[in-house]
Design a binder for these strands. Structure first.
Lengths: 111, 111
DNA sequence: TGACAAGCATCACAGTTTAATGTATTGTCG
DNA sequence: CGACAATACATTAAACTGTGATGCTTGTCA
């Protein structure tokens, strides 16, 4: 996975993953579910999207993982690193910039 | 160009193009420029993105075009059809749904 | 026992945007 | 005049992203 110059609109999964992990540590499957529920079903990214992101984020040292057995299940728990927190801040302000930009164009009066 | 099931984030160029044409008729090059300026430089889609959209939208009868010579320039002016207006409304509410969803997840308190 | 949820993972594919390139005309500046 | 930038259209290969399918294992529950 290469994230060179992710343009405006993609990379939202990355933003949401980081944002969730900023609250508490979580495992992949749980992240998939929470993105769906906590966005009010507005967004839903499959495991085929989220797992590769987690691996990428770990390789980038934005998250760290720990395998743990909980409730008879093997889970990979991820938590944010300091670096990940910075990345989250950057992506957040980028997201705001973009949505603000869209609003500017959208909300202008009809001629 | 197939626009079957454009997921959440893509298709923003289409939204902005339709929104601009809802105000007044415009030509391609102008649309490219206005997206850049009216979003406060937050968004910038190249001609390689916008022209194919215009052709696609015309094929879909969401816009109609008229070649005209103005100020010594040959331009293809596009304007919205009734169908395009409906499409704009659909894309607009979809965009709101998505950004609202992201906000829901983003703005929740830290644990 | 069979079905299904939880949990991880990978991959081919499809859709979207970028960046480069091409053509032609018009305007500008030294 | 000559060069170069801007205007205006268009196309294309390549890159990037997310989808949907699939596979594997373990646990639960009827």
């Amino acid at each position: 996975m290469k994230k060179t110059n992710p343009s405006f609109l993609n990379g939202v999964p990355e933003l949401l993953v980081l944002r969730l992990l900023a609250r508490r540590e979580m495992y992949g499957y749980q992240i998939v579910e929470e993105i769906r529920t906590q966005t009010g079903e507005a967004l839903s990214f499959g495991e085929g999207c989220i797992y590769p992101y987690l691996h990428y984020l770990e390789a980038e040292k934005q998250v760290s993982s720990q395998r743990r057995e909980v409730e008879g299940r093997n889970r990979n728990y991820y938590k944010l690193t300091a670096r990940g927190r910075k990345r989250l801040e950057a992506l957040t302000s980028e997201w705001k910039r973009v949505t603000t930009g869209v609003s500017l164009l959208m909300e202008e009066q009809y001629a």
